[in-house]
Design a protein around this nucleic acid. Structure first.
Lengths: 222, 222
DNA sequence: TCATCAATCACCATTTATGGTTAAAGTTGT
DNA sequence: ACAACTTTAACCATAAATGGTGATTGATGA
């Protein structure tokens, strides 16, 4: 894949709730001949609303934003603009979020700690059809791919509380009570209580039933 | 993932039908303290046959070889040695082949045009749990993943026996060991044994993991 | 025929999961 | 301020699952 000089600059928009990030990205991209930062937004909603009119070539999305998260934004954008390259921005390698973003249709991600010159390179790369990611994330993707793991299944129908959904997610991923308690930083007994409620609400009485029910549910919604 | 100094060199074997490649790789690896090229083979078959006795830490496989291709070799090796890192070697970015290699279980790939110093680095990386690949290939993987495609080879068989499949079916339906034993008219301990084997073959160690894996697999096949 | 694998069963020890019950602190909305 | 709900946590007892080891029978195939 050869990188030829752009006749027209790559149109980029960005959404990030952190002003500092926005500003520094702006500064760098404005210096570039090949990239034109068309607009920047402080929230995902604004960004999504303006894509149609702005017609960007590449979208940069902070993965963590209040109200609408970057992941949700990806889903919406991907649905309306199947081919539009989307890069996620994240402060650190939050595996699950990056993983879910990618499942939602993101084309790669950038660590905010990445050098800003590298940013320009990565934007060009994703525009040219590449997918920036580090070997560690790549490996995770491959593993997940090989295992055909489930991304994320939100179980709305059963009136599960936020915490209960979290716990159920982890159960579906095959975690034990103990692992869940560690991961969520709560006691084993609390996990036990949550699972009790989950079982009540789902009308099941074992992990395997809960897991089946949850996955099937999720699939059927598509 | 931190790269610490190796106390023992990484044991590497390579298969490539091109003598020039073999020789230059040999030359480079022999200069390295951290890597020990244990053996090199001119064909995939020889390579596969000798893995067991050589116990390498990393395998390098040319993607294009006569008789048995690298891809076929990957499948075989991956089956016998689930955790063994495999790097594919290819002359150019043959997307499909690389893609299929990865689906077959390769952990990354190297262009033969890559600098030989880089080669050492990449070997260390895959040994440490990374997955060397270029952005273009990564993009393909992501697309396939997002679409939840099942590439030819990725719909792995797990070599479950007839009985094991039956037991797994019931597990997925949420049945307990006891219920399964009743339904199949076999003892609890036999169920236990079957499940043991199933876990081995699926590389899991709990019902929930087995169930997730199985359902996803099944659903994705259509 | 010898080797391999599928299917069956058992004994053991240990870890996990499940169900019943209780309860305190925090949140939210009326 | 009160009700309703969420999240947290604990105690107890029992059921279930997991892992190690070993073993027998029959079928299949080199």
């Amino acid at each position: 894949m050869e990188m030829t000089k752009q006749d027209k600059p790559i149109r980029v928009i960005i959404a990030d709730d952190n002003k500092n990030i926005l500003e520094s990205v702006q500064a760098v991209l404005n210096d570039s001949q090949d990239i034109h930062l068309v607009a920047s937004f402080g929230s995902a909603i604004e960004c999504v609303e303006n894509i149609e009119s702005l017609k960007p070539d590449v979208v940069l999305l902070d993965i963590d934003m209040p109200a609408m998260t970057g992941i949700e934004a990806v889903k919406i954008i991907r649905k309306k603009f199947p081919g539009l390259p989307i890069l996620m921005l994240t402060g650190f390698e939050d595996d699950d979020k990056v993983f879910n973003s990618i499942c939602a249709g993101a084309n790669g991600y950038l660590l905010k700690t990445t050098s800003l010159e590298s940013l320009i390179f990565q934007i060009k790369e994703v525009y040219a059809g590449g997918a920036p990611m580090t070997p560690v994330i790549a490996r995770k993707m491959l593993n997940a791919f090989a295992k055909q793991q489930t991304p994320q299944s939100a179980s709305e129908e059963y009136n599960l509380s936020k915490r209960e959904k979290e716990v159920l997610e982890l159960l579906v991923k095959g975690k034990s009570y103990k692992m869940i308690s560690t991961q969520l930083n709560i006691s084993y007994e609390t996990v036990h209580t949550h699972i009790r409620r989950i079982y009540q609400k789902l009308h099941v009485n074992s992990v395997s039933e809960a897991v089946s029910k949850t996955i099937i549910q999720k699939i059927l919604r598509h």
